[in-house]
Every structure is written in structure tokens, then in C-alpha cells.
């Protein structure tokens, strides 16, 4: 198997390790050199609110801002990786150039993290994209990350919303963005524990909107998980 990013041949994992492990061996699609460029976030050095990389677990300035803006608790977000240069390049290729293969890189890491929640009865809910983006891109980049996970499409983009062009806005414009989502009405959220899943936590605006919709529909608890922060 060659690395999907740099085309180098990937050395197979130790045969002994495979022999003595109970799980089937994972097919690696990213080589160790490429993987080392991504910085995974450990709980000691992240903001306890949004999961951002920093030296202490105290709330970051963004989270303080959210505290002033909303009533009730902060959204607890966990991010798997720091949004560093390697991650920026990743999203450029995967999401904007549309290289759907690259969904494979982080599927296992995400499945492991989502698994911790779903074992305790949480529902995984990906953030949707607009129909127009779906047609152009050909895939929802969040659902692409979740191929190994069972999830529920509880959210959809409102017909008149222009969320599609969000990445072209600056921080202030993003924070003013009105509620872009509505519930897929057929499905019950009442008393459910909801784990929202998105690709990147940037300002938090998207996830806070999704949460308020869930809470209004009677969700018991809402947390979120993103690939990067």
C-alpha cells in the first residue's frame, strides 16, 4: 500500500503485533512521515471549552466571549487535531479540491472517539452541507469522516440559507450568521443525548446554532466533536 498523500510505500506493521492482537489489522493509508505532521490534541493542553491547543486547560478568549453572549453552559467541544499548516493543507485538498479519498486518513481516530460516546447512548449527528455544495463537491466532508460510525442525519440546511459560502467570510461576519439549520422533522430528539460532529471548529458559531436547535427540541445534553480546532 502506498501513502495516499506522498505516494511512498508504507511499511507494514509488525507481524508479531498483528498476531497477538484480537482486532483485524488496519490498512494504513497515510505514512508515518505524513502522519507526524498532524498534531493530535491531548486533554492536558487544550481549552476546556472548545478544545483548542494551548498550554493550560483554562478557558480561551473565544470561550469567554461565548460566555458573555449566551445564557447557560458553554458547548463542550473536543477536537482531535490542531488546525496547523498540515491540517490546512488537508482541508484544502480534501474539501476544496474534492479529493474524496482523503476521507480515509482520520476515520479510525474519529471512530474510536465517537465510539466512546455511542457506547453510552449518545447519537452522532453530522453537520450538513447545502444541496448546492453537495452537487458541486459530490460529498459531505463530515459524513466522509464517519464511514465507520453509525450516525443520524437530524439536521438540514434551511432552503433560504446561504451557509454554503461560509468559509469566504471573516470572523465577525461568521459570528453574525443567523441560524442556518432546521430539524429533519420526522425524527425525535426529545431526551436524547446528541453528539454534534463537524470538520473544523473555527468560531463555534455553526455548532452553537446546531446546539440551540437541539436543546429547543428537547435534547437532554449536547456536546460536539470536530476533527480540528
Amino acid at each position: 500500500m502506498h501513502c495516499l498523500k506522498c505516494q511512498r510505500l508504507i511499511q507494514n506493521k509488525s507481524l508479531l503485533k498483528w498476531f497477538f492482537s484480537w482486532t483485524p489489522i488496519e490498512q494504513e493509508n497515510l505514512c508515518a512521515v505524513c502522519r507526524a505532521d498532524f498534531l493530535s490534541l491531548k486533554s492536558e493542553s487544550i481549552c476546556s471549552g472548545c478544545g483548542r491547543f494551548q498550554t493550560t486547560p483554562e478557558l480561551c478568549s473565544d470561550c469567554h466571549e461565548w460566555q458573555r453572549k449566551i445564557t447557560g453552559d458553554l458547548l463542550k467541544n473536543r477536537a482531535l487535531y490542531c488546525y496547523n499548516q498540515a491540517m490546512k493543507d488537508y482541508f484544502l485538498n480534501y474539501k476544496f479540491h474534492g479529493n474524496y479519498q482523503w476521507r480515509l486518513f482520520f476515520q479510525s481516530a474519529i471512530a474510536k472517539e465517537v465510539g466512546k460516546f455511542t457506547h453510552q447512548g449518545w447519537l452522532a449527528v453530522p453537520i450538513p452541507i447545502s444541496d448546492q455544495t453537495w452537487q458541486q463537491r459530490g460529498f459531505n466532508q463530515v459524513e466522509g469522516l464517519l464511514e465507520k460510525v453509525s450516525f443520524k442525519r437530524l439536521l438540514k440546511i434551511k432552503a433560504n440559507s446561504n451557509k454554503g459560502v461560509q468559509s469566504k467570510r471573516n470572523r465577525q461576519q461568521r459570528l453574525k450568521m443567523p441560524q442556518p439549520f432546521e430539524l429533519n422533522d420526522k425524527i425525535q430528539v426529545n431526551d436524547k443525548k446528541i453528539l454534534l460532529i463537524d470538520d473544523v471548529y473555527t468560531t463555534g458559531r455553526t455548532l452553537y446554532h446546531a446546539r440551540s436547535l437541539m436543546l429547543a427540541a428537547g435534547a437532554a445534553n449536547v456536546k460536539s466533536l470536530t476533527l480540528a480546532r
Binding site: 479540491h97 479529493n99 474524496y100 479519498q101 452537487q135 460529498f139
Partner: peptide, 22 residues
């Protein structure tokens, strides 16, 4: 398997650096 898109199209991953062809 390595070229499908969920919307039913296919793309070429081998020359994607010159803009994706579907």
C-alpha cells in the same frame, strides 16, 4: 472503489492537482 463520489459521480484522484475531473 477509490474514485467514487457519494453523489453518483466518479473522479480521477491521480491528476487531481490540476483541478478535479469528474
Amino acid at each position: 472503489q477509490l474514485a467514487f463520489l457519494p453523489n453518483g459521480n466518479y473522479y480521477c484522484p491521480q491528476c487531481i492537482q490540476f483541478g478535479r475531473l469528474t
